[in-house]
Design a protein around this nucleic acid. Structure first.
Length: 454
RNA sequence: GGGCCGUUAGCUCAGUUGGUCAGAGCAGGGGACUUUUAAUCCCAAGGUCCUGGGUUCGAAUCCCAGACGGCCCA
């Protein structure tokens, strides 16, 4: 169809090009005129008008077109002409019904607005809206850009199990399923972290995986129960190296997906050009809330301080969760321009290496943009004894009622005991990255088929 | 989990104080028309007013409960 338009472009009104062309697509408009029919046909490159007359097409062919419904998929063979009114068209010598549409498409001009129908029957949304189609093309381009960036840097893409005997690598409740033949329960992964680290133990050194993670939690504008995650691990790198790579990668992907590193966001702009602002988490929390969390190492103490500052602080939340609460309530919404928060409390980070200068903190950062967390990274903990202690802390959290605390993974500890090189690791939520790059404010706008009730 | 809002024809939407309020445009059906561009003109048809209760002489409209969805908050 694009080629047919190219053929017709140089024609003057009323002229006809040499040679036959064939186009196929969905009928989006039809203007019947007795013994003449004009039909607009659309494919993914755009539309072209088919012009059918009784003289050229005969009674049967014209009848087929006259009886066709908007929504039908038809093929037209003929010559390229420019009509007297200047429209590049295919003057039909033959038409063919390729697929009947038994149901009417969404209204062409009003579009499809009902969000429920848009999400449940995404094909109608795609059919009705060029912008929605472009949205998912941009998503594909962004993810291809991530792969290209990492491949060019010598990373290899690997695939690790989705069905796992023990879940881990994040704080979340899992989905549980059952293997009939083995008669055992398995978990859908909440992260790829612990398997990718096994790859590092084995010497693959620079690996990444792009795939779905599954978290058994609520649905919101930034959460879908299954979502697309990138994780990367690079041997002999630390979290500073990872931060530098992340900035470059996001900037490169922004260029590939949108053409530049300054992107529109909620009526303003976000400048993704490296370097991004870096702040120590504890300093940023104090600026945003007035609370120095390290000065309140006791949970009850911190809770009281938070409530005095007007923040929500659940009775049962341990110290680490309270710090996370200050972050999400007081700080995260302010982080519109890209910001890297460095050096997290150990309690929040069971797989990150301790800072040598302050054992209460770990070498970890999270990157925020558009008021959302988009990435999480650390210098990976590779000391098996320390890792075993961290699992014990998580176990204590579980026993204290935290159902998001993950169980210990003895097989992973065995791998670490074989020696994992010092490693920088990164997790980047690709759905949120696409939201950012396309100025969409709900994760449902960037996932083709988002989770819905029933 | 909490608050607010929404649900009327295939799509987009009106619907006044509870009383010819079951409506429009487009799509779909029948007809006219050989250069149209959201073609035009004529005709006919199209409904579980989300569901279930309740109030009332009378409910799309008011009340209660529920389902689904959206937004905001947590």
């Amino acid at each position: 169809m694009a080629e047919a338009r190219d053929v017709g472009e140089p024609l003057e009104a009323g002229a006809e090009a040499e040679g036959q062309v064939a186009v196929a697509g969905r009928l989006v408009a039809r203007r019947g005129q007795g013994k003449t029919v004009f039909a607009d046909i659309e494919d993914r490159s755009g539309t072209i008008q088919a012009w059918a007359t009784l003289d050229r097409l005969g009674e049967q062919g014209l009848g087929l077109l006259a009886d066709a419904h908007v929504g039908d998929i038809i093929g037209v063979r003929g010559t390229v002409v420019r009509t007297r009114r200047g429209e590049v068209s295919v003057a039909a010598d033959a038409v063919e019904m390729l697929a009947k549409s038994l149901r009417p498409p969404p209204d062409r001009h009003a579009g499809l607005k009902d969000p429920e129908t848009r999400y449940r029957q995404r094909y109608l949304d795609l059919m009705a809206s060029d912008e929605v189609r472009a949205q998912f093309v941009t998503r594909a381009r962004a993810i291809a850009g991530v792969r290209r960036f990492l491949d060019d840097r010598g990373f290899i893409e690997v695939e690790t199990p989705v069905l796992q005997p023990i879940y881990g690598g994040a704080a979340a409740r899992p989905f549980v399923t059952h293997h009939n033949e083995l008669d055992r329960d398995l978990y859908l992964r909440i992260a790829t972290e612990l398997y990718l680290k096994r790859c590092l133990v084995g010497g693959l050194e620079k690996v990444y995986e792009i795939g779905k993670d599954f978290r058994n939690e609520g649905v919101s504008f930034k959460h879908n129960p299954e979502f697309t995650m990138l994780e990367t691990y690079e041997a002999y790198a630390d979290y500073e190296d990872v931060a530098a790579m992340l900035e470059e990668m996001v900037a490169a992907v922004a260029v590939q997906a949108t053409g530049g590193t300054v992107i529109p966001w909620k009526g303003g702009e976000i400048d993704l050009t490296p370097p991004w602002r870096r702040v120590r988490l504890t300093d940023a929390l104090e600026d945003a809330s007035g609370i120095d969390v390290l000065a309140h190492p006791d949970a009850a103490d911190l809770r009281a301080r938070m409530r005095a500052a007007g923040l929500d602080a659940p009775d049962t939340a341990p110290w680490g969760k309270l710090v996370d609460g200050i972050l999400s309530q007081a700080l995260e919404p302010q982080l519109v321009q890209p910001t890297i928060l460095l050096d997290y409390p150990l309690e929040l980070s069971p797989f990150a290496k301790r800072r040598e200068d302050d054992p209460r903190l770990v070498e970890r950062f999270e990157a925020f943009c558009g008021g959302m967390e988009i990435a999480n990274a650390f210098s990976e903990l590779n000391d098996p004894d320390d890792q075993r202690e961290r699992f014990a802390m998580l176990q204590a959290d579980r026993e204290a009622g935290d159902d998001e605390a993950q169980p210990s993974d003895e097989d992973f500890l065995t791998a670490l005991e074989h020696g994992m090189p010092p490693t920088g690791g990164l997790g980047l939520g690709l759905d949120r990255l696409v939201m950012l790059l396309t100025d969409r404010h709900s994760i449902r706008e960037v996932i083709l088929f988002p989770a819905m009730r029933t």
